[in-house]
C-alpha cells in the first residue's frame, strides 16, 4: 500500500516537474506586440525585425476599409475590420530565421497589390 502511495507521489512529482519545465521554457520566449495600421495602400510599419524565438502578436487596425493580413507561404489570413470597428489579431511564432512577406489579402482598391510588408527574423 505504502509502495503504491510512493509510486503515485513520484509520478505526480514527475508530472509537476515536467509542467514546470514546460512553463519555464514557454515564458523564456520573448513575446512582442506589434501594432500595425492598415490604410489604402500601406501597412505602417511595413517592416518588422525580431529575434528568432520571439512570439509576435500582430494587432491590426484599419484607418479606412476592410483589409486582409496574410503571411505569404502560410494559409493563415485575417480580415482587418473597417475603421472604428476594432482590431484583428494574428500570432507569428518566429521560430526560424529568414524574411517573411505579409500582404493585404482583401481587395481594397486600385493600389491593393502594393500593400505589402516584411518580417525579418534574425538569429
Amino acid at each position: 500500500m505504502r509502495r503504491r502511495t510512493r509510486s503515485r507521489r513520484a509520478t505526480l512529482g514527475g508530472v509537476l516537474l515536467a509542467v514546470s519545465l514546460a512553463a519555464a521554457q514557454a515564458s523564456s520566449q520573448d513575446r512582442r506586440v506589434v501594432r500595425i495600421l492598415a490604410e489604402r495602400f500601406t501597412f505602417t510599419p511595413s517592416q518588422i525585425t525580431v529575434k528568432r524565438g520571439t512570439i509576435v502578436e500582430f494587432r491590426l487596425r484599419s484607418d479606412d476599409t476592410n483589409h486582409g493580413f496574410h503571411i505569404v507561404g502560410s494559409n493563415a489570413s485575417v480580415i482587418i475590420p473597417k475603421r472604428g470597428r476594432g482590431e484583428a489579431t494574428l500570432v507569428f511564432d518566429a521560430d526560424a530565421a529568414g524574411r517573411y512577406t505579409f500582404e493585404c489579402s482583401k481587395m481594397c482598391g486600385a493600389g491593393h497589390s502594393f500593400m505589402r510588408g516584411s518580417i525579418t527574423v534574425e538569429e
Partner: peptide, 28 residues
C-alpha cells in the same frame, strides 16, 4: 478562440501554400 498562429518554420517557400483562387468582386 485564440487568434490564428503562423509558425515561421512552417511557412512554405515553394509557392504552394495557397492554390488558385478567384475574387471576390469588388468595386466602387
Amino acid at each position: 478562440t485564440p487568434p490564428p498562429t503562423v509558425r515561421a518554420s512552417q511557412v512554405r517557400r515553394d509557392d504552394s501554400a495557397v492554390g488558385s483562387q478567384t475574387g471576390p468582386i469588388s468595386g466602387y
